[in-house]
């Protein structure tokens, strides 16, 4: 009975908070302890480890909690140095294209709508292209 009661509570933990920008770019950060503030037209998320992510509100479409990291939470492709090489894979793991980080918008806009994985510096990020 007690176990059923516990299960009925439907408590849910989420390890990650994912921001989705209007261009489909997604950025995941560690959720526990994160504090979000708004200033000068930006969202500023500060994790428990004091890592900051700043996203212009004008570019921000939504945010959501994710249960699992799926290994793609740490890259923020939008903030990479312009010369950093970025590889783009589809969900079947096929390399679709690559580009220098500074050319991100042009490279992504040319892709068919869908979900892609960006990889750079050994880290990954999931993006939606609409």
């Amino acid at each position: 009975m007690l176990l059923l009661t516990a299960l009925g509570a439907k408590a849910q933990t989420y390890a990650y908070l994912t921001f989705t920008q209007a261009d489909g770019t997604e950025t995941s950060i560690a959720a526990p302890g994160t504090v979000i503030t708004f200033a000068d037209g930006n969202l500023v998320a500060t994790t428990a480890a004091s890592e900051q992510t700043t996203i212009a509100l004008a570019d921000l479409a939504s945010m959501r909690f994710d249960e699992t990291a799926t290994g793609i939470e740490t890259l923020n492709a939008a903030t990479l140095p312009a010369s950093t090489p970025v590889q783009v894979y589809d969900l079947q793991g096929r390399l679709v294209t690559s580009y220098a980080a500074g050319d991100r918008r042009a490279a992504l806009y040319g892709l068919p709508a869908g979900i892609y994985i960006l990889r750079a510096n050994g880290r990954s990020q999931k993006v939606y292209v609409r």
Binding site: G41, L57, S62, M63, R64, F65
Partner: peptide
């Protein structure tokens, strides 16, 4: 709020940015 997987939408209105 209890966290859910639902999207929390941002928008821009005449009164300013909203979530």
């Amino acid at each position: 709020f209890n966290a859910t997987a639902d999207e929390m939408l941002f928008s821009t209105t005449a009164e300013g940015s909203t979530v």
